[in-house]
Computed example of a mutant assay.
Amino acid sequence: MNKFSHIDLRVNDLESVMPFYEKLLPELGFTRTYHSLNWKVFAAEGELPSAAYFAITEDREHKPNSNLIGFWANDRDEVDHIAKLVQENGGTINDGPRLFPISPTYYAVYFEDPCGNKYELVHRLN
């Protein structure tokens, strides 16, 4: 059983990052939205509350740090696709997409959202 439930993400400027997340999150499987005034929620398939979801709220004092959220990719093409999407929508590529010496098949891209929150998308076979 996958124990993942949700992510509650803080950003320092909700309005400026929403176009980025509106493009990124559906590509990662968070295709349904449940937005309120203070929270923008993107949910995966399944019934709430058990469906995984990604919730974003604004905290003007938020300062991104070294924390990193990682996602699996189905294949290298998906890693390349997401890297292009990040670049086209205001994100920053920090490294990749490329093979990393973690394992012979570890193909990943490391990136940040427009306010500096860090992510990784990885495909690996072993």
Rank of each mutant, 00 (worst) to 15 (best):
P64C: 05
P64T: 07
F42Q: 07
F30L: 08
L121G: 02
P19L: 02
R76D: 01
H6D: 07
E27D: 10
F111Q: 08
N94E: 13
F71V: 06
M1Q: 09
I93K: 10
V109G: 09
E120N: 13
S50R: 12
K40I: 00
F71Y: 15
Y110E: 07
A44S: 14
S50H: 13
L68Y: 04
I69M: 09
L99F: 15
S5Q: 10
N126C: 03
P19D: 02
E15V: 01
K63D: 13
Y110G: 08
E120V: 14
A43H: 02
V41G: 01
P64D: 05
T31D: 10
K23A: 15
D59L: 01
A52C: 06
E78L: 05
K3V: 09
I7W: 10
R76V: 02
N74I: 04
H123Y: 15
D77W: 03
I82D: 07
E78F: 11
C115A: 11
E47A: 14
S16M: 05
V122A: 15
H35T: 00
P101Y: 07
R76M: 12
H6T: 06
E27P: 00
Y34H: 12
S36H: 00
E61A: 15
N74G: 15
K3F: 14
L28R: 05
R98D: 10
E27C: 05
E58W: 00
F4E: 04
K118R: 15
K63A: 15
R10L: 09
L99C: 04
A51C: 15
R60H: 14
I56S: 00
T33D: 05
L121D: 04
D13P: 02
H6M: 10
P114F: 13
F20Q: 09
E47S: 13
A52Q: 11
D95W: 10
N67H: 14
N94F: 00
R98C: 11
G96P: 06
I82H: 08
L99V: 10
F42V: 06
I56G: 00
L24D: 03
E45I: 03
D80M: 06
P101R: 09
N12S: 15
L28T: 02
E88H: 04
F20T: 07
R10K: 12
W72C: 09
G46Y: 11
Y110V: 05
N94D: 12
N126S: 12
F42H: 10
P101H: 08
S36I: 00
K40H: 00
L99S: 13
Y53C: 11
H62W: 14
L9Q: 04
D59Y: 00
T105N: 09
Y34E: 13
P49S: 03
R10Q: 11
E45F: 08
N12M: 08
Q87F: 00
P26R: 01
P64E: 06
H81A: 08
F42C: 07
V109Q: 06
D77Q: 12
N126I: 06
R98H: 05
D75L: 05
D8G: 02
N65L: 10
F4W: 07
R124Q: 15
L24P: 04
S16K: 14
F100M: 14
V122N: 13
P101W: 05
I93Q: 12
E120M: 12
E112M: 05
L24Y: 04
F4H: 08
H6I: 01
E78S: 07
P49Q: 01
I102K: 07
L25I: 10
H123T: 03
G29F: 03
H81L: 09
S16A: 14
K118L: 03
F54E: 13
I56C: 00
